[in-house]
Design a protein around this nucleic acid. Sequence first.
DNA 1: GTCTATAGAAGGATAGAC
DNA 2: GTCTATCCTTCTATAGAC
Lengths: 202, 202
Amino acid sequence: MSEDTKVQGTRERLVSTAADLFGRQGLSATGIKQILAGSKAQFSSLYHHFPGGKDQLAAEAIRTAGLGYQQFVEEIWDGAGDLLAGVRSIFDGAAYVLEATDYADACPIATIALEVASTNEDLRLATAEVFESWNRAATVRFVAGGITPSVARELAVALIALLEGAFVLSRAAKSPESMLVAGKTAVAMVERALALVEPHGG
Amino acid sequence: MSEDTKVQGTRERLVSTAADLFGRQGLSATGIKQILAGSKAQFSSLYHHFPGGKDQLAAEAIRTAGLGYQQFVEEIWDGAGDLLAGVRSIFDGAAYVLEATDYADACPIATIALEVASTNEDLRLATAEVFESWNRAATVRFVAGGITPSVARELAVALIALLEGAFVLSRAAKSPESMLVAGKTAVAMVERALALVEPHGG
DNA sequence: GTCTATAGAAGGATAGAC
DNA sequence: GTCTATCCTTCTATAGAC
């Protein structure tokens, strides 16, 4: 009867519900009661699992959702034929999810990141660590594709910036245009870098 | 003794203070009392000028700050030698402002845009209109540079996506890296488009 | 570990004197 | 138009019975 025998314990449901709500409407706009209702949990459960209250829950939601999104993207990347097809799939997939969820599901941590950047140092660090983890993962893939480490890092940063910016613009406009254009741009960028690796055709 | 004889009336101070706070910590995290304190105004002033309360003030703050940032960027662009130098200056300027303000001053409406995208249709539309206005202004400049309208539109979208995404990443990391890389990427993008316009050297 | 009840502060908004 | 005081709700967090 230990906790890990449960399919999804109260603690996991709290983190998952919190991450969803934080991603869609932000940290401050999401009340603890709303999280409890969505998790079908009680006050006592929350403060039992997270003595630090909302902030501790938020820190864990950021890390869990950030890692979850990274894994989601890496699976898409692995499923694609090559580096370039992977980049294309990431942006196409993001555009698809945006439309399918009426532009509610986007980057799980961007809203929190902007909210806390100047107001909560612990949470800011949590978001920074997530983005840095994404950067490292993308850089590794570009290096594996034969691109030099410094260029690979720049490609990774640019790719993530394009993705994050397109999330903002697409959600605001309720249109996939920005995400599709961002994808086209990212693909062109990576294509150019790869062309420098193998200037000889085929 | 009409309102416009004053240097900056209560109404203007309210909008300006609100825009600043919304941009730095978000809409939900910013209380009306905090806005009043920052504006040295009273409750009655706020509800006199904005019968619709916080939402009406937010809508006006979004439009005013959005237009203000557009003018700020357009002045930078005008001050630069050419199209390409303008793009470079925008990102360098953004990186400079980020560092100078300890990563507090970034896009004035991105935080709100993400907060309200799925929760407040009026405010979502206000943010969408601002971004569309930026898009049009940038597109016009690229077209004036000889780029075809459809490519110009894509360049504008990509430029703004890079800028917005870099704001998120740079604020989270408290580092200018993302903004500088985004600028480099934007410059390369525009360079390539211009090269197709005048393939002959000089 | 789970429930109810409630404290204590902060939120948005309004009333009414001046 | 400006000031003070206040209403009502919501928020986070805790207490205490079981």
